[in-house]
């Protein structure tokens, strides 16, 4: 009985089309960053059958009820909400692992979003890959959409498809997160740059997340990098959260981190442009 008044929160769906570009990591980290800023946040894992968000947050062992239990009325919404172990104002509604996307309808998702937005400032929905039922469920109750892509031709192609579908659903133009950009590869011309991606997608940019090994280890440990003040990727996620809050945050300069190896090469005269 902690929340009485309607918070009238924002429902934001994180999607991508292509799988494996970092939707779930983005959802967890942007959510954690918003929660660290004092907002009440609930993350909804809409990837029914391929439950992941709980693992990234290190909350798998706490799951009793899931999203399908809620929409089918087997439990109350409150019972399915898992409170994060680090941030008191961050919660998760896990996906069902033993069911599939057809277990939830777009109407049910809309209803769920309506209930959640009364209790939370932000409702972040982690969309499954693809453009089918799972995706349509994920955007059914959304006010805004964030599209995650990698600087790869196939990921950008799928993101473009998704942007078209979001526009067709009469939602506002989605905002773009370019994830796993490697400044060194871009510099060598071996990777699409953020500008290349923007030229095709032509939607507003809300975040650029550098490729960062620490994300892999943090994800495996169930620790959002957004809570690690020394992580460059974590800073990028915190910046996205700040931009969602309407703050005008400049984009971090995309330089390759000056590692020992590069410094040594430069000392030997191989450093190239700095």
């Amino acid at each position: 009985m902690e929340e009485q008044q309607d918070r009238n929160g924002r429902v934001i769906t994180i999607t991508s089309g292509k799988g494996g570009v970092g939707k779930t990591t983005t959802t967890a980290n942007v959510g954690a960053a918003l929660a660290a800023r004092g907002k009440s946040v609930v993350l909804v894992d809409a990837d029914i059958g391929l439950r992941n968000l709980d693992i990234v947050l290190g909350l798998e062992n706490r799951i009793v009820y899931d999203i399908v239990d809620v929409v089918e009325g087997r439990c109350r919404l409150r019972q399915a909400l898992i409170r994060d172990k680090r941030l008191a104002n961050l919660a998760l509604i896990p996906a069902a692992q033993t069911r599939d996307k057809e277990a939830v309808s777009p109407d049910q998702m809309q209803e769920l979003c309506r209930e959640l937005r009364q209790q939370f400032d932000f409702v972040l929905i982690d969309s499954p890959a693809g453009i089918e039922r799972g995706f349509r469920n994920a955007i059914a109750g959304a006010d805004e959409v964030l599209v995650v892509t990698n600087p790869e031709v196939s990921a950008v192609r799928d993101a473009d498809r998704i942007v078209g579908l979001v526009e067709a659903a009469e939602l506002p133009p989605p905002r773009l997160i370019v994830n796993r950009i490697d400044p060194e590869l871009v510099r060598r011309g071996d990777m699409l740059s953020v500008e290349d991606v923007l030229e095709i997608l032509a939607i507003p940019l809300i975040g650029v997340v550098p490729a960062d090994e620490s994300i892999v280890t943090a994800t495996n440990r169930g620790e959002p990098v957004a809570l690690d003040p020394s992580s460059r990727a974590g800073q990028a996620f915190r910046d996205i959260a700040a931009r969602l809050l309407g703050e005008d945050v400049p984009f971090q300069p995309l330089e390759a981190p000056d590692g020992v190896w590069r410094r040594m090469l430069r000392a030997l005269g191989f450093g190239g442009r700095t």
Binding site: I131, R157, D158, D160, R161, V163, G164, L165, E167, A202
Partner: peptide, 11 residues
Amino acid sequence: TYVRRTLRSGM
């Protein structure tokens, strides 16, 4: 025929 929009992948 006049189309005033960007045609994205799949359209």
